[in-house]
């Protein structure tokens, strides 16, 4: 049995922060320059007490309210780096909150910007192996809770949000192949220290991002992953109808586009009014591209996630509603 994406929905928190607010709180920031490089005008921020589980549950409820039967779900994968607790797995809480079957497999995946592609690979594998029939894949993040209000590198970029995807059986081969990679030498360049068992004397537990280092990683590694995937699939750039990259920032996306020589008509970006929601960016963009008719039925779409870890993953999907 093969697998395909059956449904997608997303949920964004009520609270929006625009660049004017960031400027008011940080008078020394050159906001026009920041907006030009990030391409982001607004970002969503979860309320105090509103967590990745809360956002993920709301995203999934939209799918069930639209008619998908809860009873069909037999596996839950929650991709998040802002879990409600270190333990238990937040996916278990999602199972209870959504009143899904107790026969569900449920687990968290601790990956960030590559997380949707990683989760899609796992969901697809569960289905092709016969372990599950319908997987609820949720990508949900509240990175803003880790970010200092005066952190000029991270605050203008990151946003909170969640996407929920149902991956189910398919007669055709609609998901894959995949290309994955890891380079843990970059772990220190995007990190929340003192957030796990390893602690240091500083006690610092805010998100730290070395923008230049992460940027160089993306410029070098993402085009290589795209080309490896094309080679693996026996396809060329011309065979891909649409590219959806992790919505990191305008600068990152424009440079990937430049290096891969992708025309504007074959790339879908939506970060201007949503920001970088980490693992949720790709499914949110995919849903918006489908709703806008930018992706046509049967079209070959490449999804590429990359970032914290460093970790990256790319895959091809055929969108067949």
């Amino acid at each position: 049995m093969n697998a395909a994406i059956k449904n997608i929905s997303y949920h964004l928190p009520d609270r929006l922060e625009d660049n004017g607010l960031l400027q008011d709180e940080n008078s020394d920031w050159r906001m026009a320059d920041i907006e030009k490089k990030t391409g982001i005008k607004k970002r969503y921020v979860a309320a105090p007490g509103e967590t990745a589980v809360d956002l993920g549950v709301k995203a999934a409820e939209k799918i069930f309210e639209a008619g998908f039967a809860k009873e069909e779900i037999d596996a839950i994968i929650l991709v998040t780096q802002s879990p409600d607790f270190v333990l238990p797995a937040s996916a278990c809480i999602v199972q209870h909150r959504l009143q899904l079957s107790k026969q569900c497999l449920a687990f968290d995946v601790n990956q960030g910007c590559s997380g949707f592609v990683v989760g899609l690979s796992l969901a697809s594998s569960l289905i092709t192996a016969g372990t599950a029939q319908h997987v609820l894949l949720i990508c949900s993040e509240t990175y803003t809770k880790y970010i200092d209000r005066h952190d000029r590198t991270s605050r203008p970029v990151f946003s909170d949000g969640a996407a929920a995807v149902i991956v189910g059986p398919s007669a055709g081969s609609d998901i894959g192949p995949f290309d994955f990679g890891t380079d843990g030498s970059g772990a220190d360049n995007l990190i929340v220290r003192n957030s796990g068992a390893r602690t240091d004397d500083s006690g610092e537990s805010r998100l730290f991002m070395n923008g230049s280092e992460v940027f160089m990683f993306t410029m070098d590694m993402v085009p290589k992953s795209v080309n490896r995937l094309l080679q693996k699939a026996g396809k060329t750039m011309d065979d891909v109808g649409m590219f959806i990259f992790h919505q990191a920032s305008a600068l990152v996306l424009s440079n990937i586009q430049r290096r891969l020589q992708i025309g504007d008509e074959k790339i879908f970006n939506n970060l201007e009014n949503i920001g970088n929601t980490v693992s949720a960016t790709i499914p949110i963009a995919l849903k918006q591209a489908i709703d806008k008719g930018v992706i046509r039925p049967g079209e070959c779409v490449m999804l590429v996630g990359f970032g914290v870890g460093y970790s990256w993953g790319s895959c091809l999907i055929n969108y067949n509603p």
């Binding site: 920041i34 490089k37 923008g211 440079n255």
Partner: peptide
Amino acid sequence: DSLVHLGILVSLDVELEGRAAAVKKLAA
């Protein structure tokens, strides 16, 4: 600052026709 530095990295890569991206030390 770090924002300006990102612009420098991009310009170097453009001028060097994609060869700068693999020079990780440029970031620092």
